[in-house]
Nucleic acid binder design. Structure first.
Lengths: 194, 194
DNA sequence: GTCTATACTGAGATAGAC
DNA sequence: GTCTATCTCAGTATAGAC
């Protein structure tokens, strides 16, 4: 960790702070403080704040791809894989209650700012969408796979927004259970048809 | 409209700009430009930006209460009233795709800023929650009325976040249909039990 | 590659004239 | 009640020494 390049340290710190405080509300001074470098040193690594944002999005995209590959490695069955997606909500319930979903809040913020990188940020949703849709196809739901993927991501986003607004842990658990039940119904409908 | 008090004009302009650009990203200059007054004049009406925010939240709370009262006046049956809530998503699909849900995005932003008024903003959700729960009770679902209310608001929030991120109008229509179907099932389960 | 010092900007806020 | 002028401060960004 300590021999991590300064550039990587900056990106990691920015990643965390953008999540906790939002992109606009995070200043260079904040990031510099966390990393323990001077403000000036900064511009040796990134020419502007937008460049740091792009680096953070790139890193998140890479991390997400890696996570999805890990799920594929761990579970051969599509429903088990999709369950992993749903369980993000339980596994990260503490940070979600405090700061919401990192993807959802970044997309909302950049959208409102009309920021040029908003489409890249939405690509994080796109990654999950494509991956989930493929698993729903494998589940025998080829005809409405993309619809189901979007529905599931949307449900998760709703849970994150509400958990953040109300700080209600029981609500998360309840909704996660409901989503697992929903997924079970998806699988059964597939089996009925085949 | 033109003989509206300057104070009201400020609150209305702030309300719109906070929705479109977010609270932090809206400056006094922005609001002053819209209203057509000088920056200085501002402090005659509000001592700080936070005071404007509080006035905006108060106004939204009052407007929401009025809207809910209107729904109660228009429809005697609880399921018809709840349908009105779901239909907000269709009725406001254009601004939702552009800016998200005004309640959800304000709560998320104030939460991230750790702003003192974040709980007041969450009160907007609370208003819908209480109102919906009461209608679910009237629908014969006294035991899980609050659970259903939270679930419905959460679903709506998810739709808003996704519609905003992807700008997908078909998605909104599809989810609205799904929510109406869900509500119909809620009513049927009640009828079965009674 | 890292630092200090500093320029420049925009935003919140105040004072005081009209 | 509205204006102009101005203050202060934080944030982005640059220059140049080490």
């Amino acid at each position: 960790m300590s021999d991590e390049s300064t550039r990587d340290q900056i990106v990691n710190a920015a990643d965390r702070l953008f999540y906790e405080r939002g992109f606009e509300h995070t200043s260079f001074a904040d990031i510099a403080d966390v990393v323990g470098i001077s403000r000036g040193n900064f511009y040796h690594h990134f020419k502007s704040k937008d460049e740091i944002l792009n680096a953070v999005i790139e890193m998140r995209l890479a991390a997400t791809r890696e996570m999805l590959a890990g799920w594929e490695f761990d579970h051969p069955e599509p429903d088990e894989r999709i369950r992993r997606f749903i369980d993000i909500l339980s596994a990260n319930r503490a940070p979600i209650m405090r700061h919401g979903c990192p993807v959802g809040s970044l997309c909302s913020e950049l959208g409102r700012l009309g920021h040029p990188s908003r489409h890249e940020a939405a690509g994080l949703f796109g990654l999950f969408r494509t991956w989930l849709a493929r698993e729903f196809v494998r589940l025998g739901r080829a005809r409405d796979a993309d619809r189901l993927a979007l529905h599931l991501i949307g449900r998760s986003q709703g849970v994150a927004v509400m958990a953040n607004a109300f700080g209600d842990e029981k609500f998360i658990r309840r909704e996660v259970r409901a989503l697992h039940a929903w997924l079970a119904r998806c699988s059964q409908e597939q089996e009925k048809h085949s």
